[in-house]
């Protein structure tokens, strides 16, 4: 099958203060067939251009939200984006078929390690569990939901050498979204 056009919607309110997320998005920008949009750069005033966003979504086959994991969810602009862009009659509801069949996935960087994100850990659930609202939103929009790409324990990843393997994994993950069936691993 022909390769998919992949859209990475990157949302980080303070990218200059991040290490892993910044490295990952730089990697994404180097992957052929991947478009990266930095939502906080485009909408520092939160005034989302709904028509423009919808037009861009319609010209891509796979949508990826890349963001840090804040309070078991995404930064606030992602919510704003979903509230406004995923309109009734466009994304869901009667006549809302614009996103049908397109892939939806998330790439999440998370401070806590795997040990705290499990049924025995302090957070009692995995990151993937916490992303349930996104999963259900995608399903409601008739999208082809894929498991997230998660980087755990970002606080411990200080040197470029430590981060590098995740960047390569991310590239591989994106390429598989682009070319293959996209069924993928949750990383470390």
């Amino acid at each position: 099958m022909p390769s998919r056009r992949v859209l990475v919607l990157h949302a980080h309110p303070a990218p200059h203060k991040s290490r892993v997320n910044r490295r990952l998005v730089a990697e994404a920008e180097g992957v052929d067939g991947v478009t990266v949009r930095h939502l906080y750069e485009i909408y520092p005033d939160f005034l989302i251009d709904v028509r423009e966003e919808q037009r861009i979504l319609e010209s891509h086959d796979a949508i990826v939200f890349q963001h840090p994991f804040y309070w078991y969810s995404a930064p606030s602009l992602v919510k704003e984006w979903m509230d406004l862009v995923l309109e009734h009659g466009w994304a869901y509801g009667s006549g809302g078929t614009a996103l049908h069949g397109r892939i939806f996935a998330q790439a999440v960087t998370c401070g806590g390690g795997r040990d705290v994100y499990c049924s025995e850990g302090r957070n009692r659930h995995s990151v993937r569990d916490f992303l349930l609202p996104f999963e259900q939103s995608a399903l409601l929009c008739g999208m082809d939901w894929r498991p997230p790409f998660v980087v755990h324990g970002t606080g411990d990843l200080k040197s470029a050498g430590e981060i590098e393997p995740f960047a390569l994994d991310y590239r591989t993950w994106l390429e598989s979204l682009r070319d293959g069936d996209g069924r993928s691993q949750e990383t470390r």
Partner: peptide, 15 residues
Amino acid sequence: DDHAWEVDAKRRGDR
């Protein structure tokens, strides 16, 4: 007022 978005802050809370 935006330390919450720093990488090390997240570690503190392990959120």
